[in-house]
C-alpha cells in the first residue's frame, strides 16, 4: 500500500531523493531508524511528522550527511549524501537559527557565498535579494540578537537559499515560535516554495503545519523509528489561511492522526 502510493506520486523524471532500506543504530544500541524506504520527486514539499524519537530528524541528518547510516543506500540526484554535501547540493535550516552574532543580518546571509567563493561582486546583491524574499531587507544592517526569534529564523532561511541549492532540508524551523508567528511563516514558506520551485523536506511535530505545507506527509512512529505510511495531500494550490478551514483539510489531518495512532505514535508524547 505504502509502496504503491510512493510510486504513483514519483515524478516521470525519476526521484531526486531515494532512500532504500536505510537503518540507523546508534552506539548506545538505540534503533533510531529501521529499514526506511522513501522516494521524493523534484519540486515536492515533503513533511516528516511523528513524535519525539521516531527518527525524523535522524532521517534528515542522514540525507544531509551529518551522520552516516548503519545500512542501506541513500541517493540524492544520483549521488551519495557525502558527494551531495561536498557539491553543496542542499541548504539546511536548523531548529535554532544558528546565526553568527558577530555578523550583521546581511553578512550572515552572505556567509555561504563567502565560504563557497562566489565572486565578490555577486554576494551582496544575492544576499539582498534573499532578504527581500523573507521580507527583512530593512534589517540588513542589524545584528541577529537585535531581532525577534521569528525574524532570526527567517534570516536563516534566507541564508539557506542564498547559494541557490535545489534542495532544502528544514528541521522543525518554527518549533520554538508561537502559533501566530508560525502560521504567518508557514504562509511565507509556501509562497517561497512556489516561487523558487525548490524541493523541500521539512521535519515537524505539528499536524496542521504538515497538512498545510506538504504535497505528501511521511508519518513516522517510534521504537524503533520507522516510516508508518505516506499520505498524499491533494489540497489545491495556492493555499491560504482559508485552506485551513476546509473539510478536506480536516479529513487529511484526521488521516495523519489515525496513522500516528496506528503506529502507537501517541504513546510517547512528551
Amino acid at each position: 500500500m505504502t509502496e504503491s502510493q510512493v510510486k504513483a506520486k514519483s515524478t516521470p523524471t525519476g526521484s531526486l531523493v531515494s532512500v532504500q532500506n536505510v537503518s540507523m543504530v546508534f552506539a548506545t544500541g538505540t534503533v533510531a531508524l529501521k529499514e526506511a524506504n522513501l522516494e521524493i520527486g523534484a519540486g515536492e514539499f515533503i513533511s516528516l511528522i511523528g513524535p519525539s524519537g521516531c527518527g525524523k530528524t535522524t532521517l534528515l541528518r542522514l540525507l544531509a550527511d551529518l551522520i552516516q547510516p548503519t545500512s542501506g543506500a541513500i541517493r540524492i540526484g544520483g549521488k551519495t549524501p557525502e558527494e551531495a554535501r561536498k557539491s553543496r547540493a542542499y541548504g539546511y535550516v536548523f531548529q535554532a537559527p544558528t546565526l553568527m552574532e558577530w555578523r550583521t543580518v546581511l553578512q550572515n546571509v552572505m556567509l555561504p557565498l563567502e565560504v563557497m567563493n562566489f565572486p565578490a561582486h555577486e554576494r551582496r546583491p544575492r544576499a539582498e535579494k534573499m532578504l527581500g524574499l523573507v521580507g527583512l531587507e530593512k534589517f540588513a544592517r542589524s545584528y541577529p540578537w537585535q531581532l525577534s526569534g521569528g525574524m532570526q529564523q527567517r534570516v536563516s532561511i534566507a541564508r539557506a537559499l542564498a547559494f541557490d541549492p535545489q534542495l532544502l532540508f528544514m528541521d522543525e524551523p518554527f518549533g520554538a515560535l508561537d502559533e501566530i508567528t508560525r502560521e504567518n511563516l508557514n504562509l511565507e514558506l509556501l509562497r517561497l516554495w512556489r516561487e523558487t520551485g525548490k524541493t523541500i523536506i521539512f521535519v515537524t511535530h505539528s499536524i496542521p503545519e504538515a497538512v498545510f505545507l506538504s504535497t505528501r506527509i511521511v508519518v513516522m512512529t517510534p521504537r524503533p523509528g520507522k516510516i508508518e505510511t505516506v499520505i498524499p495531500v491533494d489540497l489545491p494550490q495556492p493555499r491560504d489561511f482559508e485552506t485551513r478551514e476546509t473539510p478536506q483539510f480536516f479529513e487529511i489531518a484526521t488521516q495523519v492522526r489515525e496513522a500516528l495512532r496506528k503506529g502507537h505514535g501517541f504513546e510517547v508524547q512528551e
Partner: peptide, 14 residues
C-alpha cells in the same frame, strides 16, 4: 563553539 554552527559549516563542506 556552538554545535549547530559547526554543523552548518559542515553542511557547507568547509
Amino acid at each position: 563553539t556552538d554545535t549547530g554552527k559547526e554543523e552548518l559549516l559542515t553542511s557547507y563542506n568547509v
